[in-house]
Computed example of a mutant assay.
Amino acid sequence: MLNAQQAVTERHQRFVDLAPSIRETIDAIAALRPEQRSDAEFLERRFIPTLGLNDELLHEQPPELSANFGMGLHLWQYPNQLAPYLVWLADNCSDISSYMEIGCRWGGMFILVAEWLRACGAGLKTVVAVDPIAPTPFIIRYFELLREQATVEPIYIRAFSTAPVVAAHVDRLRPDFVFIDGDHSLEGAMRDHLLVRRHADIIVHHDVHSQACPDTTLLWKALKEFEEPLFDVVEFTDQYPSVNGSFLGIGAMKRRGA
Rank of each mutant, 00 (worst) to 15 (best):
Leu57Cys: 11
Val234Tyr: 08
Pro214Ala: 04
Met71Cys: 11
Met71Ser: 15
Tyr99Gln: 04
Tyr142Lys: 02
Ser246His: 13
Asp201Trp: 10
Met100Cys: 05
Val16Met: 11
Ile202Arg: 02
Phe110Lys: 01
Gln13His: 12
Arg141Trp: 03
Asp39His: 00
Pro79Thr: 02
His193Gly: 14
Gln149Asp: 13
Leu57Glu: 15
Tyr99Ser: 03
Asp201Ile: 10
Arg147Glu: 12
Leu18Gly: 09
Leu43Cys: 03
Pro132Leu: 00
Thr9Leu: 12
Glu56Asn: 12
Asp207Lys: 09
His184Phe: 12
Ile111Pro: 01
Pro79Asn: 02
Arg172Gly: 08
Leu53Met: 00
Gly107Leu: 00
Leu18His: 14
Leu86Tyr: 03
Glu225Thr: 13
Ala167Cys: 06
Gly107Phe: 00
Leu89Tyr: 02
Leu194Pro: 09
Leu117Tyr: 02
Cys93Gly: 13
Glu10Val: 10
Asn80Pro: 05
Leu194Met: 13
Arg198Ala: 13
Arg255Gly: 02
Gln239Trp: 04
Glu35His: 07
Ile203Trp: 11
Ala258Thr: 10
Arg23Gly: 11
Ile22Val: 10
His59Glu: 09
Gly107Val: 01
Leu86Gly: 02
Ile102Met: 04
Asn244Ala: 10
Ser38Val: 10
Ser210Cys: 13
His205Asn: 15
Glu148Pro: 07
Ile203Val: 15
Leu75Tyr: 01
Ile157Ala: 07
Arg174Val: 14
Ala222Leu: 14
Gly108Ile: 00
His59Pro: 07
Glu153Pro: 05
Arg158Trp: 06
Asp131Cys: 07
Ser185Arg: 12
Pro63Phe: 04
Phe236Asn: 01
Ala67Phe: 10
Ala90Met: 06
Glu235Gln: 13
Ile29Glu: 06
Glu115Ala: 04
Asp39Trp: 00
Asp131His: 08
Ile133Pro: 06
Phe177Pro: 04
Trp76Pro: 06
Ser66Met: 05
Ala19Glu: 05
His199Leu: 06
Tyr240Asn: 08
Ile26Val: 14
Val127Pro: 02
Asn68Trp: 15
Gly72Val: 02
His59Arg: 08
Gln149Arg: 10
Pro79Trp: 01
Leu53Phe: 01
Glu35Cys: 08
Ser97Trp: 12
Asn3Tyr: 08
Arg45Glu: 12
Val87Ala: 00
Ala134His: 12
Ala150Thr: 07
Arg256Gln: 04
Gly107Pro: 02
Leu58Met: 05
